[in-house]
Design a protein around this nucleic acid. Sequence first.
DNA 1: CTATCTTAGTTTGTGTCACGTACTAACCGA
DNA 2: TCGGTTAGTACGTGACACAAACTAAGATAG
Lengths: 149, 149
Amino acid sequence: MAQINTVDGLAQLSFLIQGALERRAAEHDVSLIQTRLLGVLRDRRPTMQELAKLLGLDKSSVTGLIDRAERRGLVTRVPSPTDRRSSLVDLTDRARELIVAVSAGFEADVTAMVGRLPEQDRTDLTDLIGRLLTAHAAAHGVDLFDTTG
Amino acid sequence: MAQINTVDGLAQLSFLIQGALERRAAEHDVSLIQTRLLGVLRDRRPTMQELAKLLGLDKSSVTGLIDRAERRGLVTRVPSPTDRRSSLVDLTDRARELIVAVSAGFEADVTAMVGRLPEQDRTDLTDLIGRLLTAHAAAHGVDLFDTTG
DNA sequence: CTATCTTAGTTTGTGTCACGTACTAACCGA
DNA sequence: TCGGTTAGTACGTGACACAAACTAAGATAG
């Protein structure tokens, strides 16, 4: 097999990862975007507007997304104490349990995947991805993954 | 920032990559799944059934996907010469041009992203991803990305 | 050869997801 | 308090995915 280039490699890898995540989420009857929503909310309690930016969606899309998540008991809309127009989106306990369950399955997939590589390669890969994400976060303002909530 | 683990890193990276691909595809008014379809068809001419397996979709989903792609002049249904029930899905020239255009944009994104890393890291990353994909393909039967079409 | 079984694909109905536009309510600055 | 902005929702549309029911054609058993 010819050595693959960075562009195709990253594209293929991303489909692989997303596929695993989607399957694991589906085991618990949640979609990929709902799972992503929960992941973003794990350490934040944003307004609808902030959520739209974090997810890269239109605000009207977020309304529907949160409607469906709320109907399923995964999030709640909390009125903002400082702005009566605004609501804060908060995870329910049920959602936190769901995150743990989906994460466990997904972690097993990733472990199996990278487990085929030798130990040194694994740590190298994790390290490189960490550096890539850090560099990207530094170059852009928004960071989907910080823990400063 | 605390060093991220492999599982979260891969998840975040995959969202980053898919986001870039989706935006580049949207510039040419195609969706992510349509783009993925075209990528899969680049070096194949599968039946609807085979396509369903390659994309991990239900056969009825593929009917709709191909309907829309055909309506946009991206693919054609060619009757199978050996089985009158079956059709082969083929790319149009217009689709091949589209692939080139979307790829160019996406490649620019990836280049910009990994361009923030030192040269050695870049080659290491590409190499590691290649090894990961190769190992995964070896462990599973199907390989979405071979060129044996 | 035909009755039956299986396979390829479509149709139909349902739900999710995303968007743009139009709207309401609330905030804010002059 | 008036006019402009901002937060969020409502509505209509289209893409996407699924399951179940269906048609047509291939395959197989007798």
